[in-house]
Amino acid sequence: METLPALQARGITKCFGDVVALDGVDLKVAQGQIHGLVGPNGAGKTTLLGLLLGLAVADSGRLEILGTPVGRALTVPDGVAGFVDGPGLYPSLTARQNLAALAALHGHDARTAGVDDVLEEVGLTDVADDRVRGFSLGMRQRLGLGATLLTKPRLLVLDEPSNGLDPVGKRHVHGVLTRLAADGTSIVLSSHRMDDLEALCSEVTILATGRVVFSGPLSELAAENRELDHRLVTSDPGTARRLAAETQGIRIVDDAYGRPESGVLVVRALVPDLDELVRRLVRAGIALRELTPVVSPLEAAFLSLTQPSAQATRQSTNPTAEQRAEPPEGLRTEPQEAGR
């Protein structure tokens, strides 16, 4: 028997006056999946996250969260938690008092709600009794994550959860999110940090001007039909450069990155051609010390799919919101009586 997704959206559209923030967006998130939401500023990410948290309603489309259809009320099913544009906290209260106040809103005291356990999980035990007004941005982000954990959510919606985190804090948050997903919690998170998304997410959705331009596994973004630039460090840079120049499909692009470092070769190639170069290096007895993308597959796809020229091509081959026929069943904009 197929398990119901934690989240399924079909044809979601949201407008603010003449501005189309979301234009026929589809999104599906499986249970226990960490799903990344990516897009340039103004792509519609915050609007979509707000819909998932019940902070706004769609104009049309169908939205189901945790198996429950979401209608035209500012509400979401129990089991959903998260924050948009940063967590809301009381600066004059301590970290422990903030969480205790939130627990009280849900009818629990600090002990039964597990406030101390949550503080330990997000790595804030040592500052539990410090006032939040003195917290760094990263500490506030971790406290905001802790606040969401009090309700033991089944769907967690996070907007830039790694914002302001130092390397230790980022590793801590990554560990928390990974453990939650392993226990069955579904997570939707937006981030401008491609390394975070690649480390955490099994699937991503890329938005541009309110539309989905890609949605699927990260592995599809590293498909063999996409050229990527790679740094190549070997034991014999001169011979490596010669072999690269002689290998079909390999382009040397040092100049695109300024003056090359000593011993570093930057090449652009499809994956099969890069594999052939590696084979030639090995046959020549040259040690391969580093082979890494200059730009990650996710970032390369992001840049490719969200550039204005790429958007223009897609829009010329896809109908606009106004050109689409009857809107999907579910949420619809209905004419209102005068004075309502």
Rank of each mutant, 00 (worst) to 15 (best):
L137A: 12
E121W: 00
Q315P: 01
T313P: 01
A284Y: 05
Q141N: 10
L232G: 05
L180C: 03
V282T: 15
A245H: 10
P327T: 00
T151S: 15
Q33R: 03
G184V: 11
L102S: 06
P327Q: 01
L265W: 11
D255M: 07
E322L: 08
A182E: 12
P328G: 00
A103L: 11
R111W: 04
R142S: 07
E198C: 12
L137I: 14
L277E: 06
A21Q: 03
R280K: 15
S60R: 00
V168Y: 11
N318T: 14
E276A: 13
E120R: 13
V204L: 08
V157E: 03
I65F: 04
L49W: 03
Q33G: 01
G175A: 05
D78E: 13
E120M: 03
D229G: 06
G107H: 13
D229R: 12
F83A: 07
A147D: 03
D130L: 10
N225Q: 14
H192C: 04
S304E: 11
R314K: 11
V70W: 05
E220F: 12
E326K: 12
T94D: 07
H108V: 01
I250Q: 06
E120C: 03
G82T: 08
A245K: 13
P237C: 04
L49G: 02
A301G: 10
V38A: 14
Q315Y: 09
L243E: 08
R340N: 15
A325F: 03
I286H: 10
F83I: 02
P327F: 00
V70E: 06
I286G: 08
D255H: 14
L4M: 12
R62S: 12
A81D: 05
R268V: 07
E261D: 15
E299L: 13
A325C: 09
A300N: 09
T46Y: 06
G11V: 00
A240R: 06
A81H: 05
S202M: 01
D183N: 14
A43S: 13
P237A: 12
G184A: 08
E198P: 04
S304T: 11
V132N: 13
N318S: 09
D229C: 11
G144M: 03
P237V: 07
S190Y: 03
D275C: 03
G210E: 00
P69E: 15
E329I: 00
P293M: 04
P319A: 04
H174D: 05
L197I: 15
S92H: 13
G24T: 00
V282L: 12
